[in-house]
């Protein structure tokens, strides 16, 4: 489904600040895979997301979705395959537009945007159905401006907008990190049920070790721009936070450092 072959990315090449952001990344995901990604600060997690979504282009290597090499496509062209939820709840929605207008824009993903009405009666019905599945009452507030919603509500809406058109790949970039624990838990549960129901191929960056172990069928760990640990479903079943930290230290030779790391 998603393949990254020998992907490398340098920041500030040929300057004193040169940094290897990604080094020879090999990642193959099967359809329906739900991979969680953890790693220390500057390990390359966000760069990995940006390379897949097309915000950045790899220096070498290629990105393949559904056997199609998309390395050269700009971000807006890739979005037909990729749904994405950002860490910042403000990033995934347009605040001065209404909930239904935001959903209409998400609905138009991968389609030619023309002069037909963005929100029609038929679409409104569909939007209301989807919103009611979130179970937080947004289906009653279709005409509310998104800027009036709380961070948790906005993130739930972002998640719905990223998924309800059934993307081939779902990218979650620490999408619960900016929320308080109760709301983060709600978004995590919503994520889990949406991904399971729609069988979405998902890549989720998280700094929550417990969440990384609990969710998904595969876990990868990054350090210094490399994937240093790749744990499949079998081994993931009896993984604990302590064993994961231990393995990290053994392989990388230093302690896992992430100032926002949550152990669980």
């Amino acid at each position: 489904m998603l393949q990254l072959n020998h992907v490398a990315k340098l920041f500030n090449p040929a300057t004193p600040d040169e940094k290897i952001a990604l080094f020879d990344i090999q990642l193959h995901m099967k359809p329906g895979d739900f991979v969680t990604v953890i790693g220390s600060n500057g390990a390359g997690k966000s760069t990995l997301m940006n390379i897949i979504s097309g915000v950045m282009k790899p220096d070498t290597g290629n990105v393949i979705i559904d056997n199609e090499d998309i390395s050269h496509l700009p971000e807006y062209r890739r979005s037909q395959w990729i749904g994405r939820v950002f860490q910042d709840p403000m990033a995934g929605t347009a605040p001065r537009m209404t909930i239904e207008e935001n959903l209409a824009m998400a609905y138009a993903r991968g389609k030619q945007r023309g002069f037909s009405l963005g929100v029609k009666a038929s679409k409104r019905k569909l939007f209301r159905e989807h919103l009611s599945r979130l179970g937080i009452g947004l289906d009653e507030r279709l005409h509310a401006k998104v800027g009036m919603l709380s961070g948790g509500e906005r993130q739930a809406l972002s998640l719905l907008m990223a998924t309800f058109t059934n993307p081939q790949i779902l990218l979650l970039d620490e999408h619960t990190a900016a929320l308080d624990p109760a709301r983060a838990e709600l978004i995590t549960q919503l994520t889990e049920s949406i991904v399971r129901e729609m069988n979405l191929t998902t890549l989720m960056v998280t700094h929550n070790m417990e969440q990384a172990i609990r969710l998904g069928n595969r876990l990868i760990m990054m350090d210094g721009g490399r994937i240093i640990l790749d744990i499949d479903e079998e081994r993931k079943k009896d993984l604990t936070v302590e064993r994961l930290l231990g393995e990290f230290e053994q392989i990388s030779g230093h302690k896992l450092s992430d100032d926002r790391l949550v152990l669980g």
């Binding site: 807006y76 950002f86 537009m97 824009m105 138009a108 945007r113 023309g114």
Partner: peptide, 28 residues
């Protein structure tokens, strides 16, 4: 009528949250 069309929504979102509308496939 134009500002409520699909293209019009994308235009409005470009001024409101450019990163978001690009992630939904609009050429900003």
């Amino acid at each position: 009528r134009f500002l409520y069309s699909d293209l019009g929504l994308a235009l409005r979102a470009t001024g409101d949250n450019e990163r978001m509308i690009r992630s939904f496939g609009a050429n900003t």
